[in-house]
């Protein structure tokens, strides 16, 4: 069996963590060919060729794949589909945008956020905000899936797969990129960080988030947020952790001023150690926390930052 795996590439840079974790899942399905697509993708393709277990890398570097708009990227993947039984990608916003389009072009269903590969046709995925885990068996001739990276270990590096350039296909020309407003940060990336410190509505304001950021910086952690904190404008959208935001599973997750709604838990309950700090002892977050501390975050967090 052969698998085509779209590597996660942003602005020419390979996201090694997401891609290598998806490789682990894909290896269970067959020989893995990586597709490196973008306006700059050759370097990322070369780097992806070092991931252990990768058989081959295809590089599609062309201006029309800049910012990986869904229509041209899906058209490219669909044009390659004949040679593969599975088409996969780490479940990033890019892949969630592109792969369902590919699946419909191939007249097959999509499997999103796969958390376990049972066999070539059978997969596990969470539903209802992680309140249930469904095992589904696909009857389609080809499987198109996105892989939830937080549940797989990254494949190692040291491999040296062959790299082949492939031609671009026609761009339907339906959309154009206008601009990106991306947060610049020296902090680790949220989905691959070993430690995440998240703030909720309890933080109260954008300025107050500095309390969270100081603790994060002390720990070399990424910063996350609840939906309420994002909706209130305290934190940018890309910090949202949860059912409809990012899914994280760091070694340590510190939830501060977050009540613990099921939609938030969906994005962090697989963290190895969870710490909750909340002034309300009844807050549901304490039910999933390994260590809970009842207190005012504006007293607790500065003290914690100092003592760590």
């Amino acid at each position: 069996m052969a698998v085509l795996l779209m590597a996660e590439i942003n602005d020419g840079h390979l996201s090694m963590d997401a891609t290598a974790k998806a490789v682990t899942a894909a290896q269970a399905l067959g020989d893995v060919t990586i597709l490196a697509v973008g306006s700059k993708a050759a370097e990322a393709g070369k780097e992806a060729a070092t991931i252990e277990g990768v058989a081959k890398v295809l590089v599609a570097e062309d201006a029309r794949y800049g910012h990986r708009l869904a229509e041209p990227t899906a058209a490219l993947i669909a044009s390659l589909a004949d040679d593969y039984d599975h088409i996969a990608a780490p479940a990033t916003t890019d892949a969630k945008n592109i792969l369902p389009r590919v699946a419909a072009m191939l007249d097959v269903m999509i499997l999103t956020d796969v958390t376990a590969v049972v066999d070539a046709d059978t997969f596990e995925r969470p539903i209802y905000a992680g309140n249930a885990v469904q095992t589904v068996k696909s009857k389609d001739p080809k499987k198109v899936l996105t892989i939830r990276t937080s549940t797989f270990d990254a494949a190692g590096t040291g491999g040296s797969a062959s790299v082949e350039e492939i031609a671009a296909v026609d761009d339907p020309g339906l959309s154009e990129w206008v601009e990106d407003k991306l947060a610049e940060s020296d902090r680790p990336e949220l989905t691959s960080a070993g430690i995440v410190v998240s703030g909720g509505r309890g933080i109260g304001s954008e300025e107050n988030f500095a309390v969270i950021e100081k603790l994060a910086d002390k720990l070399g952690a990424a910063v996350g947020a609840s939906r309420a904190a994002v909706d209130s404008g305290f934190a940018p959208n890309d910090w949202q952790v949860g059912q409809t935001g990012k899914v994280v599973a760091p070694d340590l997750y510190i939830a501060v001023g977050i009540s613990g709604a099921i939609q938030h838990l969906a994005g962090m309950k697989d963290s190895k150690v969870i710490v909750a700090i909340n002034k309300d002892e009844e807050a549901p977050i304490f039910q999933v926390a390994d260590y809970g501390l009842v207190g005012d975050l504006f007293e607790v967090i500065p003290e914690l930052t100092e003592k760590l």
Binding site: N131, A132, T135, V136, K137, L293, L304
Partner: peptide, 28 residues
Amino acid sequence: GPRLEVVKTAEPPERAAGEMVADVDTLV
């Protein structure tokens, strides 16, 4: 007609109960 057959729907693994700590020093 569905393309995906639901083989099984299960509860997610439960987290073991944690503990409450009294102060920052204990937490650290």
